[in-house]
Amino acid sequence: MTIMENNKRVDTAHTIPLGVLYGAGAGALWGLVFLAPELARPFTPLQVAVGRYLAYGVLSALMIAPRWKSLMHSLRKKDWEALFWLSLCGNVFYYVMLSMAVQKGGIALASLVVGFLPITVTIIGSRDKGAVSFGALLPSLLFCAAGALCVAWQALAAPAAGGHAVSGFFCAVVALVLWTAYAVGNSRCLVRLHVLSVHDWNLLIGIVTGAQALLLSPVAILSSPYTYSTGQLGRFAAVSCAVAVIASIFGNALWNRMSRLVPLTMTGQMILFETFFALIYGFLWEHRWPRLLEGVAFVCITLSVLTCVSVHQKHAARRRGAISGLMENGV
């Protein structure tokens, strides 16, 4: 690798604070998604997911239409394959499996398993060339695990929706694998595809996700035997469009910008912002203060992100020093 290439990689270290802000913004918008089932309570989780992603697809198609022909020349078959799998793993299939995990095993089991998502992404990212070592990231990962355990332990007070713990655990593990694959795959696609903006990539994912949701719509309609009033359907449409705009359009756009600014070992930690804000919105919705374990979870999540940022800043400083030494020696 040349000195110029090294300099390019090190320069990205200066964007870490901005990347963290984008990650926090994405988490703040994504956290609102957890209110959608409450706002559209008569409808099943599958119907809520299909409604959200149909709206996401329609809005994406309208927004990208003026640039559609020019974008088609920039995309290859490999890119369309990536869009298909990212949409399926990170949106449709993930949400369905997570909903099944909650229904079968309860909130505690699902939150405990999926709560380890930042750890799985960070471990994979630590294997990349030039990445921060796993040992240096261990304190951050331990704080993350402690926060997830606190949330899950607190959730044990809530009754499980079903007693099928084994099948619920399996669904939660599948959901964890799916979103890990999405986070890693999406980050690497954004690094590779310089010809596309993060906004256009998000809209393309929206179009593909909308097509997948359209195929699932008959199943969603038949998933509930209830008939809904005009008022309920209007509320459902409003919630679906709001979530599509706030979380899928703007939230995903911020996440994609973050993915181009920080290394993969930090991407996993940024997912903690979604948990952080989801808890805040939940407390506001329930009109209460955090309980003891929930407060501890807040502290653990904050420490996890702070230690992760600190490690990456120190790693970047060491790389800058090493490169400066090479340049002074004329290497």
Rank of each mutant, 00 (worst) to 15 (best):
Y228E: 00
R318A: 12
C300G: 08
G231H: 05
L306T: 13
A253Y: 15
Y226F: 12
T275A: 00
H287Q: 13
A237G: 14
T267A: 12
M270D: 03
I280N: 06
V239K: 09
F283Q: 05
Y226W: 09
Q232A: 14
V299G: 08
M266F: 14
L303D: 07
Q269Y: 12
N256R: 00
Q232Y: 01
Q232L: 02
L306G: 02
L284S: 04
A278G: 13
I249G: 07
F273M: 00
E294Y: 09
S224I: 04
T230A: 14
E274Y: 03
G231N: 08
S248Q: 11
S248P: 00
V305I: 15
I280H: 03
L254S: 07
E274N: 02
F276N: 06
A237D: 03
S259Q: 15
T267E: 03
I221L: 14
H312G: 01
A247H: 05
L279G: 06
M266D: 01
M258P: 01
S224C: 06
F276D: 00
P225Y: 02
V309L: 08
T307H: 07
M270N: 12
S248W: 05
L254A: 08
M266C: 01
L303Y: 04
F250H: 00
V311M: 05
T265L: 10
R318N: 10
R320S: 08
Q269A: 08
T275E: 01
A317V: 01
C308A: 15
V311L: 04
V243N: 04
R319Q: 15
H312T: 04
M266H: 07
A297N: 06
F277P: 06
V311E: 11
